[in-house]
Design a protein around this nucleic acid. Sequence first.
DNA 1: TAGATTGTTAATCGATTAACAATC
DNA 2: TAGATTGTTAATCGATTAACAATC
Lengths: 213, 213
Amino acid sequence: MPRRENISMSVIRRLPRYYRFLTHLKQKGVTRISSTELSVKLGLTASQIRQDLNCFGGFGQQGYGYIVDQLCDEIGNILGLSNEYKAILIGAGNLGRAIASHMSFDDEGFRLVGIFDSSPSKTGTRINGQIVRDTVELEDFCQKEQPTMAVLCIPRDGVHTVIERLYNLGVRNYWNFSHYDIAMKYDDTVVENVHLNDSLMTLCYRISNPSQK
Amino acid sequence: MPRRENISMSVIRRLPRYYRFLTHLKQKGVTRISSTELSVKLGLTASQIRQDLNCFGGFGQQGYGYIVDQLCDEIGNILGLSNEYKAILIGAGNLGRAIASHMSFDDEGFRLVGIFDSSPSKTGTRINGQIVRDTVELEDFCQKEQPTMAVLCIPRDGVHTVIERLYNLGVRNYWNFSHYDIAMKYDDTVVENVHLNDSLMTLCYRISNPSQK
DNA sequence: TAGATTGTTAATCGATTAACAATC
DNA sequence: TAGATTGTTAATCGATTAACAATC
């Protein structure tokens, strides 16, 4: 029954939410949960939850439900959270500093191994104990450390050239916070965008148009 | 032809992207664009773009296309970006500080009027010229200033009580950065979630499962 | 065994794409 | 006028929901 190919993005984006909630249940000491209970707590339908989980295998037991601990671990495995992919962060401005701190205390599949900035006012300073390197060191560093992923916290205009350098260095997965949609010509890359401005504008729309739910 | 009710979230979430790209075109001095050109640049179909825009009215001209300047303004209006909704920010940690700076130099529909934190190490400090107030002042401040929206950059466990206080003060729109899904019992609220952890886990999945596009 | 709840197939709903007539 | 491109309807595709047989 477990397929595991061509899982839709809609399903994938719900997995972290399941994981987050199951972790919470685990901490509260809940051992067993049914799809119906889950659906109520998460505001989804029980059907959808079972449908989602069965993309990856049958983790439940008929007549009983799901074992919280086990399901949580399974989803963690599916997400690949036990990996420690090496990540670097480019751009140690306000947002970069926040993300760097965020990631180091709560690593989910990644380990931050380097922070870079091109401004002399930032290089040499420390974020959570890690030194901020000059971006000119990028080539040397990447050849040595071979990071898997780069967090991009730089202004729009800098993105293009940095991406090119990173791609050539073999760093081909990006967590992009810049106000810019990275359109990759290559298909061996993964880009996960976090467009805070877009989110804020969406909120503005929803406040301005209360007719919609 | 302009309807303007029950616009689907899928459409709404594409609007900021259109807006962002059109602003960029405007800056580059492009005056005219067709749905086909747009579709190529944005990686969508021309059909979808025309379909999306026609939820709000016919902004184009047959045989000609869209006037960049005009379309950009129209979308800005639809989003409500000329509003200056008063916003407050709760939680002046790393992320809170980053968002506060972010919002003040690039305001899209909002104006940050207050920053709050409950830790004595933070209160009294300044972020982008604005003082960080003690959260105990929340009631007085909100009664006086009547903010429309609250940015939540506090840890999970604090959210519940803060939301309750805010709701009772009439602050019912939230931009939520906490690792927590705000489930509102009331329907006069709007919650826009930014779950950075979820985004990171999704990225981890996509790196770990390269079979998928 | 009887009751409960899953896994899975079938039905519905909504969103995207295609097609084309209207019109600038 | 002829060419181009929109606005809009119709067709397709995918995702969500409902239903139920399998089974713990």
